[in-house]
């Protein structure tokens, strides 16, 4: 793959009840977005452990998306808040590791926001493209 046609690989951790449903709705509504995302379903965004994100980067992800229910909407009451704090912290840590914190993105996507989900992926793909391949992605 040459640099000019760099297609980023993004791993997305999606909560079952809102964001995964939002991704499904994008499909049902046939809203097109770039084929850059590989989704990993978890029941609650609060399940997402920083180690999953670090491992995704180590395994060559150019970007990692974590998406959960909007604040107040968490199917499990408050898992999304725990995730939000971990991501806030992890972004700082990534920066210290010299990895652009923008490669990690937290989004709240509800079950009815298929359009927004697609917009997020489009936007994230663009942004990660601009950043270029992850410096950890040496396998290409």
């Amino acid at each position: 793959m040459t640099k000019s046609e760099f297609e980023p690989k993004i791993v997305g951790f999606l909560c079952n009840w809102c964001s995964y449903a939002g991704a499904d709705l994008a499909g049902v509504s046939r809203i097109q977005y770039p084929p850059t995302l590989r989704i990993v379903r978890v029941m609650c965004s609060g399940r997402v452990d920083p180690v999953f994100i670090l491992e995704a980067f180590r395994s060559g992800a150019d970007g990692v998306l974590v998406a959960g229910c909007h604040p107040g909407d968490c199917h499990y009451l408050s898992g999304n808040y725990k995730l939000q704090r971990r991501v806030s912290m992890l972004k700082k840590v990534l920066e210290q590791f010299g990895l652009e914190p923008e490669r990690l993105r937290l989004e709240w996507v509800s079950a009815s926001e298929g359009d927004r989900f697609a917009t997020v992926i489009k936007d994230m793909t663009e942004k990660v493209k601009k950043l270029g391949p992850s410096p950890l992605n040496n396998g290409g």
Partner: peptide, 17 residues
């Protein structure tokens, strides 16, 4: 999930999908 999150959202990119 190769429909809602793949074929339906990459309808014009057969190879990539």
């Amino acid at each position: 999930n190769i429909r809602d999150q793949c074929s339906w959202v990459h309808m014009h990119e057969h190879e990539e999908a």
